[in-house]
Design a protein around this nucleic acid. Structure first.
Lengths: 161, 161
DNA sequence: GTTCAGATACTCGGATAGGGACTGTCCGAGTCCTATTGG
DNA sequence: CCAATAGGACTCGGACAGTCCCTATCCGAGTATCTGAAC
């Protein structure tokens, strides 16, 4: 079970966007150059964020991506789901339908206690991710590493060259 | 992010083993036939459980697999880790090493607050899985579906033919 | 009747192909800016 | 000098290969059992 690497890229890129002036779009190429990532592939992840309503995209010169809403309303779960999709990691294949005493009309994705236990764990994971917003993470970083906002802005300004 | 299907097979097979007489080994072929699964591939998953010390394997006639220890001491996390491996789903690639103000000596898998947030979620998931034992799940099933133990034993007896 | 040796059948265990998803890349559609030209 | 227009450059968006891991399968090593004969 391995999560897509795009999740890490998306989280860091969204975090970087929180430190840039609102109303200003940043091209995918610059967001990628910030960490030395392949631009076209990061663009693919940003498209997924746009479809999820987390960022907005603007074509043409002076175009790019920017956060679609306030960082306070964007949770880490939103970003993860946008990249990884909404499905749970554990997917019940309803083995019990092949077992003894099975009822063909029962949906064992809900009745199977194994599936329920796995879903509870998945829910705990989601709850933890949903409890933290982009703004909260941003505040943590600024408290722990006060130089980060300026460093980020300066780096992006340098990429302008 | 999709979990291996072997996890579901392993969980149901371990659960079935709790209802069979202790000290009796069940061949992988019969555990597979119980749900109509490919025997050789289920065998592979059972090997992983054996390496993790969850089941013991016995070769030769009258051989097979049986639980290595009491169901009270086997958690769902033990089974999942045995199949999926110990690594977390989110793997920090230390993007910050390529960012501004990066210290080459810092291990950003621990310092990066994004990685910390993802690790907390992973920990919540693991804690939920570690909180439920095979015996607990067995008891839940017996309470909800009282016929299951007998049904299971009968089905395995029938597979003997 | 008992014991021992050989053969047999059964089981796990690891090594070997196939398929699907993630990774990475490319080019086209659309948009904004700019320079040029005519009034 | 001003305005309109044509051209150009830039950006996103989706379509196209490459690579890795999960899925599935097969055959060999090892062991308990059974059979048969000898004592």
């Amino acid at each position: 079970m391995r999560m897509s690497e795009g999740v890490e890229w998306a989280l860091h890129s969204c975090l970087n966007l929180t430190w840039l002036p609102a109303g200003q779009a940043i091209p995918a190429a610059k967001l990628a150059a910030f960490y030395g990532l392949p631009a076209a592939y990061l663009n693919k992840q940003l498209q997924a964020l746009a479809r999820a309503g987390i960022v907005t995209s603007t074509p043409g010169p002076r175009g790019g991506f920017q956060l679609a809403r306030s960082p306070e309303t964007i949770t880490l779960l939103d970003v993860v789901v946008a990249i990884e999709g909404p499905d749970e990691a554990f997917r019940c294949e309803q083995l019990l339908k092949q077992g003894p005493g099975a009822d063909p009309q029962v949906d064992y994705r809900q009745a199977c206690l194994v599936a329920q236990a796995m879903s509870r764990a998945d829910l705990a994971w989601r709850k933890e991710l949903a409890g933290q917003t982009l703004a909260g993470l941003q505040a943590q970083v600024e408290r722990r590493y006060p130089a980060t906002p300026d460093n980020t802005r300066n780096r992006f300004a340098a990429l302008r060259a």
